[in-house]
């Protein structure tokens, strides 16, 4: 048993880190939206699926070069999401928290339904950005796409770091996160922050969607699973702290791959949600979050 574990360990870690960096980006989105608006956005995973659809449209269908296809995907995802935010979430943002949560859940059903309706059930393939010959590192095989994903995730995180520490919008989102009413008193526009938080999370999701498309293919029903995993990561780390949420997302990715690699892939979701429930019960502010 121990030998077996040692033998698959490098592979599990490589795959886990790849999956984890996607979940980390999603956790970060949960964090951004929750910070700006106090809403838990369960359409988050479906925003990623919108990104998947646009990368297929631009990269596969229209055959645009990657350098144009990826930014276009990011922008289009942002555009679609901001329109939806204005039409639905913005109108219920000051109701009690369950109402916006339900709106995002219903938006998720809507997005899945529309994609299913327009595209049918057949998942679409997106070719790997730079071939699919695995690269061997430290005893594990990694697809070249892994580096695209990990690199993209790091780039997005660096950009976000500057956004949150250097720009007025980033600072005002953080101000809202600390004290929503206080931020409004000193002139932070709550409606604009909501639009901006959702828009930003959509840009991140669009980027994430573009990067993972070759691995996951384009499937309307990935959305809810992405949402749940990203949220599990955010809560595990602590939804009020971006860095903790990132770590949480990475951990969920690793946990999931460990369970599927060493026990059975049937149990991976059960373990992830079980861990999520236990963390929510024992430490509602997250393992790395402060005392609430």
């Amino acid at each position: 048993m121990f030998d077996f574990v040692l033998a698959v360990l490098p592979q599990v870690i490589v795959t886990g880190l790849m999956l984890g960096s996607i979940y980390a980006l999603l956790s970060l989105c949960f964090c951004v939206v929750h910070a700006g608006t106090g809403v838990i956005n369960f359409a988050q995973g479906d925003f990623v699926v919108i990104g998947l659809v646009f990368i297929w449209l631009t990269y596969v269908d229209l055959q645009l070069p990657l350098l144009i296809a990826i930014p276009l995907t990011v922008l289009l995802t942002g555009l679609v999401v901001t329109i939806m935010e204005r039409l639905t979430i913005a109108r219920v943002i000051d109701q009690e928290p369950i109402i916006p949560l339900l709106v995002t859940l219903a938006l998720g059903i809507l997005i899945r339904g529309v994609i299913h309706l327009v595209w049918g059930t057949q998942p679409r393939m997106v070719p790997h950005f730079s071939g699919d010959t695995p690269i061997l590192i430290a005893g594990g095989a990694a697809l070249p796409q892994t580096f695209w994903i990990a690199g993209g995730a790091v780039l997005i995180m660096i950009a976000l770091y500057f956004f949150f520490t250097k720009t007025l919008f980033g600072l005002s989102i953080r101000a809202s996160a600390t004290d929503r009413e206080g931020a409004q008193v000193i002139g932070v526009n709550a409606g604009l922050i909501s639009l901006f938080a959702f828009g930003l999370s959509a840009l991140i999701s669009g980027g994430a969607g573009a990067l993972v498309a070759p691995i996951t293919n384009v499937d309307a029903y990935l959305g809810l699973e992405f949402s749940l995993k990203g949220f599990a990561g955010a809560v595990l780390g602590g939804i009020d702290k971006p860095v903790a949420a990132l770590a949480g997302g990475l951990f969920i990715g690793l946990l999931e791959t460990f369970v599927s690699g060493l026990i059975s892939s049937e149990y991976r979701n059960m373990v992830v949600f079980g861990v999520l429930m236990i963390v929510l019960i024992v430490r509602p502010n997250g393992l790395l979050g402060g005392k609430g």
Partner: peptide, 18 residues
């Protein structure tokens, strides 16, 4: 069409008559 229309109805209900 079912999920699309159902989700739209739910959204309308919640947004217009919370």
């Amino acid at each position: 069409l079912q999920p699309v229309i159902y989700a739209l109805v739910i959204l309308l209900v919640i947004v217009l008559l919370p």
